[in-house]
Design a protein around this nucleic acid. Sequence first.
DNA 1: CTGAATCCCCCAAGATACTG
DNA 2: CAGTATCTTGGGGGATTCAG
Lengths: 123, 123
Amino acid sequence: MKPEHLHGTEDCRAVSQILQRIGDKWSLLVVRRLGDGPMRFNELRRAIGGISQKMLTTTLRTLERDGFVTRTIFATVPPRVDYELTDLGRELEIPVKGLAEWAIVNSGRINEARRRFDGENAA
Amino acid sequence: MKPEHLHGTEDCRAVSQILQRIGDKWSLLVVRRLGDGPMRFNELRRAIGGISQKMLTTTLRTLERDGFVTRTIFATVPPRVDYELTDLGRELEIPVKGLAEWAIVNSGRINEARRRFDGENAA
DNA sequence: CTGAATCCCCCAAGATACTG
DNA sequence: CAGTATCTTGGGGGATTCAG
């Protein structure tokens, strides 16, 4: 590995992978919610809103596989499953938060650029 | 603009939008390349590698629409088109770079988590 | 309550061919 | 050189149903 610069195409693709990974439709919303503490399946489902059962399951499985959340099963009746952020998941929130703040601050500029672009194109 | 805390679901969705926007297959690679300076279409195409003509066009158009890159046409023969990052595009690189460094540093932990998860599942 | 399994739709994305 | 137009496909994502 070259310590001099991390600007290689390889690194860039790795970053793109991660970004695609957490940039899907639901992952970030789930992670954000779990940032407030452990939650159960349907609790999470209601909190997010608009997510199907299947997608929540899929999203949680992938997050678990990547080591961002843990899944704890309580063998009770009715069954209960808690999801919680791992250390890795919590650390992820730091750079994501940076991007989040940027996005919120600059969303106006982006929307303005879009309006201008669409306006020129329509005319 | 809102000076309050940014923990609302609305904000979170906005962030998710942005992440999906730049988290697609090619946008980040294009932005990264343009970070080194203006480039022409095919120059960019060769530099990235593996991207089809259509996808590069689409990606560049979207980035232009969102105000991240500019498109400059030189009415010469043969035609020449330069793409260049805007200020907004360059500012975007800052938080993205934070995420990039995190991704590179922690990619090992993610891969390890995946191997462990897949191992348990296979066994 | 917490999922797994199935069906289905739509669109991102690639391949190919053509144009200014 | 820098695109546009058209066709095709893989998979993301939703609705529904079944199971432990």
